[in-house]
Amino acid sequence: MGASAETVLFWIFAVPLIASAAGVVAARNPVHAAMSLVSAFFWLAGIYVLLTAHLLAFVQVIVYAGAIMVLFLFVVMLLSLTDAELGLEKLSALKWVGVVGAAGMLVLVVSALAQSGPRAMRAVGADFGTVRAVGRILFTQYLLPFEATSVLLLVAIVGAVVVAKEKI
């Protein structure tokens, strides 16, 4: 595939990604915001595939779109809170703090990118991003962080059960 085709595909994924990310912030209805986030994950997965990180793309859809966002949506739908209950009116001051923070972040990222300048693409091996390659790195080089994350998740599961059940 030529570089031009890749650029076209990049824009096909990038424009809807930015649009749905903006939708998350702009949507007044929490369910619409949640669905925008799901769509953002989907387009982001497309960009991962362009970077030949297939495994990461699939895992991101499984974990974020397939599991986490479903639970988010579930909670939002069951509660179906109004703006007053969410306390959105009180947030007008916080909103401006958020705008300033986001603008600062944008300046930081743009200046960092401008300083680093254009770089040549690094060629990657044929097995880059495959399940086998990622698995090997995960279970050799990054074994300790991997196991630590497992313990963290286990603690979260036990904690959720303890919180949910009054009597165990």
């Binding site: 369910v31 669905m35 297939h54 495994l55 699939f58 499984i62 397939g66 479903v70 949506l73 399940v131």
Partner: peptide, 25 residues
């Protein structure tokens, strides 16, 4: 025939929840 074939199955099976959930909501 993606390298992570079965993960594609899990990913899309997970997405099909949205259809039913949103239909009801």
């Amino acid at each position: 025939s993606p390298d992570a074939g079965l993960l594609w199955v899990f990913a899309l099976a997970g997405l099909s929840v949205y259809g039913t959930t949103l239909a009801g909501w």
